[in-house]
Simulated scan of single mutants.
Amino acid sequence: MSDVARNQVEDFPKCYGSLDELREALVGAGVSLPGLRLDPASFADGDGIPLFDLGRCNMTNAARLVEALRRGVSPPGTPTTTPAPARQGS
């Protein structure tokens, strides 16, 4: 078994954990992607990068996904941490 194939086999459980996290986050945003799965063909292509197949979704779920992404993504260049509140003078 090649090193790439061995890594893919070892990463398979991690991929399922990531798939579950993605599914939970989507459900939390009101989005249902019934076709969400790991793409089995990506494990066979030898590049060592498993892919997620997001499947098909209807217009309602697509709109919910767009809304969730727009709410949760900061514009480029925006700091990702919230600055500490300024201390008032003593």
Results as ranks from 00 to 15, higher is better:
56 R>Q: 13
28 G>C: 14
56 R>I: 09
7 N>Y: 11
56 R>H: 08
50 P>T: 00
64 R>F: 12
77 G>T: 08
5 A>I: 03
55 G>F: 04
79 P>D: 00
45 D>S: 00
71 R>Y: 14
26 L>F: 06
73 V>D: 04
1 M>F: 14
19 L>Y: 10
46 G>C: 03
8 Q>S: 06
41 A>G: 05
71 R>I: 09
14 K>A: 04
65 L>K: 04
57 C>I: 02
44 A>H: 06
90 S>L: 12
62 A>S: 07
56 R>S: 10
13 P>Q: 02
84 A>Q: 15
15 C>M: 11
12 F>V: 01
74 S>F: 07
26 L>H: 01
62 A>K: 08
83 P>A: 01
76 P>E: 10
59 M>R: 06
66 V>P: 00
7 N>L: 14
56 R>W: 01
43 F>I: 01
29 A>W: 13
43 F>K: 01
53 D>N: 12
34 P>L: 00
21 E>R: 13
78 T>L: 02
4 V>R: 06
58 N>F: 02
90 S>Y: 13
20 D>N: 14
70 R>C: 12
29 A>E: 09
2 S>T: 15
20 D>P: 02
9 V>P: 01
30 G>C: 09
31 V>C: 04
49 I>S: 00
44 A>Y: 05
29 A>C: 15
88 Q>C: 07
3 D>M: 11
86 A>K: 04
5 A>M: 10
8 Q>H: 01
31 V>T: 05
24 E>A: 13
90 S>V: 10
32 S>Y: 06
13 P>L: 01
23 R>S: 15
84 A>C: 12
2 S>Y: 08
15 C>A: 10
39 D>M: 02
81 T>M: 11
12 F>C: 03
76 P>S: 08
47 D>F: 00
38 L>A: 09
28 G>T: 11
89 G>K: 15
35 G>C: 03
30 G>T: 12
81 T>N: 07
42 S>Q: 03
84 A>T: 14
30 G>A: 05
66 V>W: 06
17 G>S: 11
64 R>C: 09
89 G>E: 14
37 R>H: 15
83 P>E: 00
47 D>T: 04
5 A>P: 03
44 A>Q: 13
17 G>N: 11
78 T>H: 05
53 D>G: 06
20 D>H: 13
25 A>L: 13
78 T>A: 10
62 A>E: 06
64 R>H: 14
54 L>T: 14
3 D>T: 11
62 A>R: 13
48 G>H: 02
41 A>F: 07
52 F>A: 06
74 S>I: 02
9 V>K: 07
12 F>A: 11
77 G>M: 05
73 V>N: 11
12 F>E: 08
77 G>W: 02
28 G>I: 14
62 A>L: 12
55 G>M: 07
88 Q>M: 11
50 P>N: 03
26 L>K: 02
75 P>D: 03
18 S>I: 03
